[in-house]
Amino acid sequence: MNDRKPRIGVFKYSCCAGCEFQLIFFQKHVLETLKAVDIVYCPMLQSGGVEDGPFDVALIEGTVTEDWQAAQLRKVRSVSKWVIPIGSCAVCGGVPAIKNTHEEYLVQNRVYADTAKVHSIRAHSVDQYIPVDGYIKGCPMGQRDLTEFVTSLLLGKRPDFLCSAVCVECKLEGNICVLVAYGWPCMGPVTNAGCGALCPSHDRACYGCWGPMPSANPRALANRFSKLGLTPEDVYRRFTEFGEPTKEWKAGQVRKWEVAQR
């Protein structure tokens, strides 16, 4: 980037808007950081703003669940140098994608008597629709990767995001392995690092909120869960709470109880 301040656009789709808050209160240095960049579009932060770009960076929050969002994404892609999904919803589908484990009409009918006004499509991550230039993972998105992103942007280098498993951070924290020692169904071995092994550090098994790490081996972990005594339904639930539509965790998302019935 040159001397001009980087122009940033923030777009929100189906999500809780928590990542936008993480961004706005970035490292408690809201002023210093936000002064170094030019946020040209972010409706939750400020009124006005230009949706049409051009942007140096477009940050996308939330799962894509309606077709106008997909159409807007393509437009955003064409006017942005970088497009970066922020938070699990945009990165891997996150919690809103749990609905993909059910039939669409069934889910809609449980909520609305009148579904004629609903135009919801299957929930998918941003990279299912457009090419992206990196991911800031986490639910809510992690401080470390966010810091890396902002400094990279200001220095004009490519960000180096974490892509190891939670286990790596868990060792650094000095925790006892809750999977091996206590037999808890911990998602740490297949989940992307970034949280600092928050759950194992608080006496709890990781539930995978950061989404899949790239080289995960879900089949091995799913088998291990079965040996621990989890039912096939329980294993399926562990692997579908975050990242239902991801190829990395696909081997853990087998509906084994239905396979047995066939």
């Binding site: 808050f21 749990i98 059910h102 919801s120």
Partner: peptide, 30 residues
Amino acid sequence: EPPRFFEGFLVGRKYDEVGDIVSRICGICP
């Protein structure tokens, strides 16, 4: 705001997952 159908997809989830899932309804009051 696009519907996310929490009441729809919570069906079939375990009782101890519910808190983690519904906190994702809102980023200000999780």
